[in-house]
C-alpha cells in the first residue's frame, strides 16, 4: 500500500518533470520561428549527445529519424539549436531523397550547460522535435591550448565508411579545417572582437544531382564536420563544395562505384 502510493507519487513527479522539461524549447524564439506554427511530434526523432561534455568547444552530436513516414514522405530539413549559446543557431541541413535515411552527425559548440534542440521537417510539412540536456564542464585536467589557425579553409576531406551498393545507404564523412570565428570572442583588445568568419555552407551533389546542403552557424565547432547517409541508385561522382563567408570555395570529390 505504502509502496503503491510511493510509486504513484513518483509517477506524478515524473509526468510533471517531463512536462516542464519538454516545454523549455517553446520559449526559444529561434525554435518557434523555425516551427512556424507547426505542432511538432515529440516521438520519432532521436538525438544523441553526451550527458556530460568535458570540452564544450567540440561536442559530438548525432540526430536520426526512427519514426515512421508516409509513402513518398521524407525528412527534408534538420535544424539544430543550442539555446544556451550566445546565438542559438547551430546548423540547418536540407536533405534530398538521396540523403536517406535521415541520419546526421556533426560536432557542435556548447558555451554552457543547456538543452539542445533538434527539429526535423518532412516534405509533407510534418515536424518532429526532440531535446537533450547536456552538462558542460571543463575537466580539471583539460585546459585547451589556444592556437591561432589561419582564417581560410584548408584540407577538405571526404570519405565513405564502407562500400557503396545500389539502393543501400553508405555513411559519408566530411571535414574541412577552418577556425569558425564566431565574431563574439574578444581578441584581447578592449571592446574589440575578432571579425566573424564562418564556413557558411556545404553542398553535396551526386552526378550534379543535389544530395544535401548544410548551413553552418556559430554553434558549429571549428573545423566543421558533417556525416550523413547516402543511398545512391547509380554510380558516379560525389562532390562536396564548401563556401566561406567571404565567398571562397573549396571542393572534394569521391567516386561512387558498386
Amino acid at each position: 500500500m505504502i509502496f503503491r502510493s510511493l510509486l504513484a507519487a513518483l509517477a506524478l513527479m515524473f509526468v510533471m518533470s517531463t512536462a516542464t522539461a519538454d516545454q523549455r524549447w517553446q520559449r526559444v524564439e529561434a525554435v518557434t520561428q523555425a516551427l512556424d506554427n507547426r505542432v511538432p511530434e515529440l516521438e520519432g526523432l532521436s538525438l544523441e549527445l553526451p550527458l556530460v561534455a568535458e570540452d564544450g568547444s567540440s561536442v559530438s552530436l548525432s540526430v536520426s529519424f526512427t519514426g515512421s513516414l508516409e509513402d513518398g514522405e521524407h525528412i527534408e530539413k534538420i535544424r539544430l539549436f543550442a539555446p544556451g549559446n550566445p546565438r542559438p543557431e547551430v546548423a540547418d541541413i536540407t536533405l534530398g531523397p538521396l540523403a536517406s535515411p535521415a541520419n546526421i552527425a556533426t560536432r557542435i559548440r556548447l558555451s554552457e550547460t543547456q538543452q539542445v534542440v533538434a527539429l526535423a521537417i518532412t516534405n509533407q510539412d510534418r515536424a518532429f522535435l526532440t531535446t537533450r540536456d547536456v552538462r558542460v564542464t571543463v575537466s580539471g585536467c583539460l585546459v585547451g591550448g589556444g592556437d591561432a589557425s589561419a582564417m581560410a579553409m584548408a584540407n577538405p576531406r571526404l570519405a565513405l565508411a564502407g562500400s557503396a551498393r545500389p539502393g543501400q545507404p553508405v555513411t559519408v564523412r566530411s571535414l574541412i579545417n577552418h577556425p569558425m570565428e564566431t565574431g563574439l570572442r574578444p581578441d584581447g583588445q578592449a571592446d574589440d572582437s575578432i571579425e566573424q568568419q564562418l564556413v557558411e555552407s556545404l553542398t553535396a551533389t551526386l552526378n550534379d544531382e543535389p544530395v544535401l546542403t548544410a548551413r553552418f552557424f556559430t554553434g558549429t565547432s571549428a573545423n566543421p564536420y558533417l556525416q550523413f547517409q547516402l543511398t545512391p541508385e547509380e554510380e558516379g561522382e560525389l562532390k562536396l563544395a564548401w563556401q566561406d563567408q567571404k565567398g571562397e570555395q573549396m571542393e572534394a570529390s569521391q567516386a561512387i562505384k558498386f
Binding site: 568547444s57 567540440s58 575537466s139 585536467c141 585546459v143 591550448g145 584540407n155 579545417n177 573545423n223 564536420y225
Partner: peptide, 29 residues
C-alpha cells in the same frame, strides 16, 4: 580529440626536450 589535458605544456615540453620526435595528430587533422 583536438584538446587534451595540459596541452600547451606538453607541446612546449615536447618541442623543448624531444624536438620533432613526437608528432601529434588531433581530431581535425
Amino acid at each position: 580529440k583536438d584538446n587534451f589535458s595540459k596541452q600547451g605544456l606538453f607541446m612546449q615540453g615536447w618541442k623543448d626536450v624531444h624536438g620533432d620526435r613526437i608528432e601529434w595528430v588531433g581530431l581535425s587533422g
